[in-house]
């Protein structure tokens, strides 16, 4: 797409999410041997800066389903956490028409509580009333396929089971903007089909969906546009087939170099 095309498109289409020059820099303590005047006495702590996302900009329009691909550690999750407003970008900003809801694999709610109670807490935190959540609970349980285990604490669930429950909680209502971070890759074949159908349904009811996945197949099945991040830089953005082809070529090349 040329800049001219983009300008034309921008006039006619309604933007939903605008990512404007987002930089995310983490400051972390790493144990390293390098000494400086602060830790010369034998302490091994040094402050390191990790530049996870580098000046990424893009605009998402109504009705699009965006796939995000990239190798491990390429900044996908960091970027989406800032789209969801859970991490403030170091520079730049994200604008959205509604509050995006993030659903990630790492997101453990309350491991010591039962699935039922996690459904209740999740629903309340998303802003539903107790009554509404209680009415939704059976459908959520059924969608997650956890009828037998819903009264057990979540710490006893397998990673696939808890991912299914989290997806079911977030997908229980139509969100204007939903971000799914590799949530489906842990589910089994049966659940994957059910959740992909639900995602298409949400996309059709004018919701915008972001999907991070390592499965090129499920990206091609559900997404209308693909963004490829590599080492924090936006490498490619456009038609799913083209971007995935280029990505496959890239990963193929790096693996032969390895």
């Amino acid at each position: 797409m040329t800049t001219n095309d983009q300008a034309v498109a921008a006039e006619t289409r309604q933007p939903v999410v605008v990512v404007d020059g987002v930089d995310i820099i983490y400051k972390v303590y790493a144990s390293g041997k390098r000494a400086n005047k602060w830790n010369a006495g034998g302490s091994k702590q040094t402050l390191r800066e990790v530049h996870a996302v580098k000046n990424v900009s893009f605009t998402v329009y109504q009705g699009e389903t965006i796939g995000i691909i990239g190798t491990n550690g390429s900044g996908k999750s960091s970027l989406l956490r800032s789209v969801a407003g859970l991490t403030q970008p170091t520079n730049g900003a994200v604008y959205a028409s509604a509050r995006p809801v993030l659903l990630g694999v790492g997101a453990v709610l309350m491991p010591s509580l039962s699935g039922e109670k996690n459904i209740m807490l999740g629903g309340l935190a998303m802003g539903y009333s107790k009554k509404e959540t209680a009415e939704l609970a059976p459908a959520i349980t059924e969608f997650a396929g956890l009828e037998e285990f819903i009264d057990l604490p979540m710490r006893t669930y397998s990673s696939g089971m808890s991912a299914r429950l989290r997806f079911a909680i977030a997908a229980s209502r139509n969100h204007d903007i939903l971000i799914i971070d590799e949530a489906l890759s842990v589910g089994d074949q049966q659940f994957r089909k059910r959740s992909e159908a639900r995602m298409r349904e949400m996309r059709d009811t004018a919701g915008t969906v972001f999907l991070v996945s390592h499965s090129i197949k499920s990206i091609l099945d559900t997404c209308s546009r693909v963004i490829w991040l590599e080492k924090g830089v936006l490498k490619m953005d456009g038609d799913p087939l083209e971007v995935c082809k280029a990505y496959n070529r890239y990963t193929g090349v790096t693996s032969t170099e390895d």
Binding site: V18, D20, G21, A93, Y95, A96, S97, P100
Partner: peptide
């Protein structure tokens, strides 16, 4: 028009703003 103004003109709000 920069991105912030573009976003504002379409009624978008900064995410996570206090």
């Amino acid at each position: 028009m920069n991105k912030a103004e573009y976003a504002a003109s379409h009624g978008l709000k900064r995410v996570g703003a206090r």
